[in-house]
Nucleic acid binder design. Structure first.
Length: 488
RNA sequence: GCCCUCGUAGUUCAAUGGACAGAACGUAGGCCUCCGAAGCCUGAAAUACAAGUUCGACUCUUGUCGAGGGCGCCA
């Protein structure tokens, strides 16, 4: 709802929702930008705007007022009530969106940090699908190249067939791979990754193999050809360069940069996705910049690529940082995490933080605090709603008016849901959903405290509010893929 | 040295450039003859520092300090 509008002469204003309900259902800051133009104090301009709103035939508005230069707008109760009746719907969208996330190398188990990106991408995909996009969830399997060779050698080193080097993977899981070929090892590790993801409730539509889907199909050659065609490549020292970056090494191998660009070209050109969203760890941000340059050079509209940088998770123990390293074998796996804390708690814990948060994670503390996780508060509100609905024998009926301010507040909150989903589908700030879920639960708790439903003269009408709230909360929790208990 | 993030109560996190910076945990206290106390109510407690832009700055700009990540013919 908070939309910026541009007026004729370049002045901007927006309509948004105030934090305090005493300041209206909506407010606008239009008077501030107008005041400069009109050379009058903001409050004076606001008063004339408010007056105009009062005089005009705006059938939705109950009243308007000017306060501190803001114009506050109060909607009619009847408007809120009739809006409540409308089903949530979104405009038709034709765009195909590819969301790539996790994409951890099949050289070891998934870590807890992979979980953060996993939950995030999973829910983001849910949201995009909810608002009507054609969404493909994709996992890139890095099953070729240097990492794979390293894995093979690491296994041989564990078997005593070669000397251990520092760059080798040394986690305990390597021992379990002894006797296997590199291909078998990758298959086994990939299988384990897939089962971890499944346990975590993170789903994928496409498992994109570098070996099968990029190398065997000659995507590199096609990409190189596109660059060559535009005169963007040069040969030097036996390698192929794009500016100051190498695309093909002197030994003939492609660099990761060429691989990444070829992969994106495959998504955006070969497979014709309108948009590619990639969730990357902060340790790959430099790569993101390079890839964007490459895409731009190919003439692909930059807006079709959206790279979301997820800050790394720092593992803490007893106030000290624990360095996580897959190679050294020091990390907490996603499986271990989910053995220690319930999945709803884990999901909430990761989903409530913005992408840009450098989060600290203390497993011991997490176990201890798991019982106090806000997710239970939200679920508890859901069970209360369920309990009220179960207790009443009446049929819910659309209200005709409100009996208590708490009813109105609850409706305002419920009505906010659709806009929120729409906004998040554009700004990708998935954590706003958990914030909203908590607020909705809080608003309901206030309603629960102030308004007795069962046995009330208006029981049927109040039931309508409760059931609508429950529907909304359940819809939200299903997007987050957090369970919606009827009883706890 | 250069680049990208981030510094908000004791702790972990919120806050489309808007009105009095919100929660949770912890902490001081209060509330169950009444739809579920996994709840409700009342306290104490924060924008790293310094300038600037703006009617208005946690938010934008610059600088300082601090934290994380990155600057390969590794991925």
């Amino acid at each position: 709802m908070a939309e910026v509008s541009k007026g004729e002469e370049g002045f901007e204003f927006k309509v948004s929702e105030p934090e305090r309900s005493e300041n209206g259902d909506f407010f606008t800051n239009a008077a501030f930008s107008l005041s400069r133009k009109l050379k009058k104090p903001p409050q004076e301009v606001a008063e004339s705007l408010a007056l105009r709103l009062r005089r005009g035939r705006y059938t939705l508005i109950e009243r308007s007022e000017a306060k501190n230069g803001f114009v506050n707008i109060f909607l009619k109760d009847s408007v809120l009530i009739s809006t409540l009746e409308e089903k949530i719907s979104f405009p038709k969208r034709e765009e195909k969106i590819n969301v790539e996330f996790v994409s951890a190398n099949p050289t070891g188990p998934l870590t807890m940090a992979n979980g953060r990106g996993g939950f995030y991408g999973d829910v983001l995909s849910n949201i995009l699908a909810k608002v009507g996009y054609d969404v493909t969830r994709e996992y890139y399997i890095n099953d070729a190249g240097n990492q794979v060779r390293l894995l093979g050698e690491s296994i041989e080193a564990a078997e005593g067939k070669r000397e251990v080097k520092e760059e080798y993977y040394q986690g305990g899981y390597i021992k379990e791979l002894m006797g296997k070929s590199t291909e078998e090892a990758i298959q086994k590790l990939l299988g384990e990754i897939q089962s971890s993801l499944e346990k975590a409730g993170i789903k994928f539509d496409v498992w994109f193999s570098e070996e099968k889907n990029l190398r065997e199909t000659k995507e590199f050659d096609k990409t190189l050809y596109d660059f060559e065609k535009r005169g963007l490549l040069e040969k030097r020292d036996g390698a192929v360069w794009f500016g100051d970056r190498v695309f093909v090494k002197s030994n003939g191998d492609p660099t990761y940069l060429l691989i990444d660009i070829a992969y994106l070209r495959n998504k955006l050109i070969e497979r014709k996705f309108d948009k590619a969203i990639i969730i990357l760890g902060a340790d790959h941000h430099a790569e993101a910049l390079q890839v964007k340059k490459g895409i731009a050079a190919l003439g692909i509209e930059p807006g079709r690529l959206k790279i979301l940088i997820l800050q790394l998770v720092r593992l803490m123990s007893k106030g000290e940082e624990v360095r996580m390293s897959k190679r050294a074998g020091a990390f907490v796996t996603l499986d271990e995490l989910l053995e220690q804390i319930p999945i709803d708690v884990a999901r909430w814990f990761f989903l409530e933080k913005a992408l840009s948060t450098h989060m600290d994670f203390d497993l011991d503390l997490a176990k201890e605090k798991s019982e106090k996780n806000p997710v239970y508060y939200v679920q508890y509100a859901h069970t209360r709603m369920a309990s009220i609905l179960a207790k009443s024998n009446l049929e819910a009926k659309l209200p005709t008016a409100f009996g208590h301010a708490a009813e109105r507040n609850l409706i305002m909150k419920v009505l906010r849901y659709q806009d929120l989903i729409e906004e998040v589908s554009k700004d990708y700030q998935v954590h706003r959903l958990t914030t909203y879920a908590y607020e909705l639960a809080q608003t309901f708790s206030a309603f629960y405290r102030d308004v007795k439903v069962v046995g009330s003269e208006r029981e049927a009408e109040l039931l309508y509010l409760v059931s609508k709230t429950k529907e909304t909360l359940a819809d939200l929790l299903s997007l987050l893929e957090i369970s919606r208990p009827e009883k706890m």
